[in-house]
């Protein structure tokens, strides 16, 4: 039972990352590696702020804004300096490693016994005894659901339409007298804001920040997106945001099973990589997207 709860907790936190990666990878067709830096960025900021007694909700808000700012940097490097998409993300990711260390002040910052969204006066009293083991899961679920609903809403706005259009057919955006570069930057900001939010939640759930925690974030995000989208390809009523969230939980379940049945935690990244490869091959993701025009 503990294992199942843990899978759902981890899966739902990574569902937020998957939604961010869905924006860049699926909508914008932009393989954004910044997330490997913005995920721990959210955690570093949250750990630092919470350790100094700041309200955890405020810490989450600051994390989102910092993530969005990092997305803005990636976007500006790509759009204004005309650096290739993959490289723009790598530059931001690399720079953020140092930034994260500076923010936290060290490579590992624990926040045990502090006020977090999982441990505060309100949630400690409203949850009745029998729900206590699920408290963390329920709170994560609410955060993930809010993120999903917000993103669903945004994608239905005028601005959201343009975001979808720019990945679909940039020529249409130009002919609508809109700057496709600006739209891409907005997409990267939302994406990285979400990823930093996930980092903030993860940091509060595991009660520490660790500078290495970002490594492989993009792989897990991509795997979740690809599992989700492939699984629900035929069902148009399932929103992509829901699909990638389910993908994320399934992915975490696969990794957890692999670890439970014999593989050590040391093999974690190896399992992650091999699993990702298997998913890629099964999903036949090999350039099924029509070659982009223009």
């Amino acid at each position: 039972m503990d294992l199942v709860i843990s899978i759902f907790e981890q899966g739902l936190i990574f569902a937020i990352i998957a939604m961010g990666v869905y924006i860049t990878y699926k909508i914008l067709d932009f393989p954004d590696l910044s997330v490997d830096g913005t995920y721990p960025l959210g955690a570093a900021i949250t750990a630092t702020l919470i350790a100094s007694g700041i309200n955890p909700l405020l810490a989450m808000l600051v994390s989102i804004m910092a993530g969005a700012a990092a997305g803005l940097v990636t976007g500006l490097i790509h759009v204004k300096l005309k650096v290739r998409d993959l490289l723009s993300g790598i530059i931001t990711m690399t720079a953020l490693y140092s930034v994260n260390l500076h923010i936290a002040g060290r490579a590992n910052l624990p926040i045990f016994n502090t006020t977090t969204i999982f441990n505060n006066g309100i949630v400690n009293t409203i949850f009745p005894g029998f729900l206590e083991p699920y408290k963390t899961l329920i709170i994560i679920f609410i955060v993930a659901l809010l993120a999903k609903l917000l993103l669903d809403w945004y994608l239905k706005t005028k601005s959201g339409y343009l975001l979808r259009a720019v990945g679909d057919n940039p020529a249409v955006v130009t002919s609508l007298a809109s700057d496709k570069g600006t739209i891409k930057i907005i997409g990267l900001m939302i994406s990285n804001g979400l990823v930093a939010l996930a980092g903030s939640v993860m940091c509060q759930q595991q009660r520490f920040f660790e500078v290495q925690m970002g490594i492989g974030t993009i792989v897990i995000g991509l795997a979740s997106v690809i599992i989700g989208i492939t699984l629900f390809r035929k069902l148009r009523m399932v929103k992509p945001t829901t699909a990638v969230a389910v993908g994320s939980i399934l992915y975490k379940a696969c990794v957890a099973l692999a670890i439970t049945y014999g593989l050590s935690a040391t093999d974690m990244k190896l399992v992650t990589a091999v699993l990702f490869l298997i998913i890629l091959v099964i999903a036949m993701e090999r350039r099924t997207r029509r070659k982009k025009l223009a």
Binding site: K158, S159, Y161, A165, D168, V172
Partner: peptide
């Protein structure tokens, strides 16, 4: 080249209709 293939006719027309105005929230 003239429309977005993964969006619906209605969504495409809505975007076209909004040309020249702000693409806001």
């Amino acid at each position: 080249m003239g429309s977005c293939s993964e969006m619906t006719i209605l969504e495409n027309l809505s975007m076209a209709d909004n040309k020249g105005k702000s693409f806001n929230l």
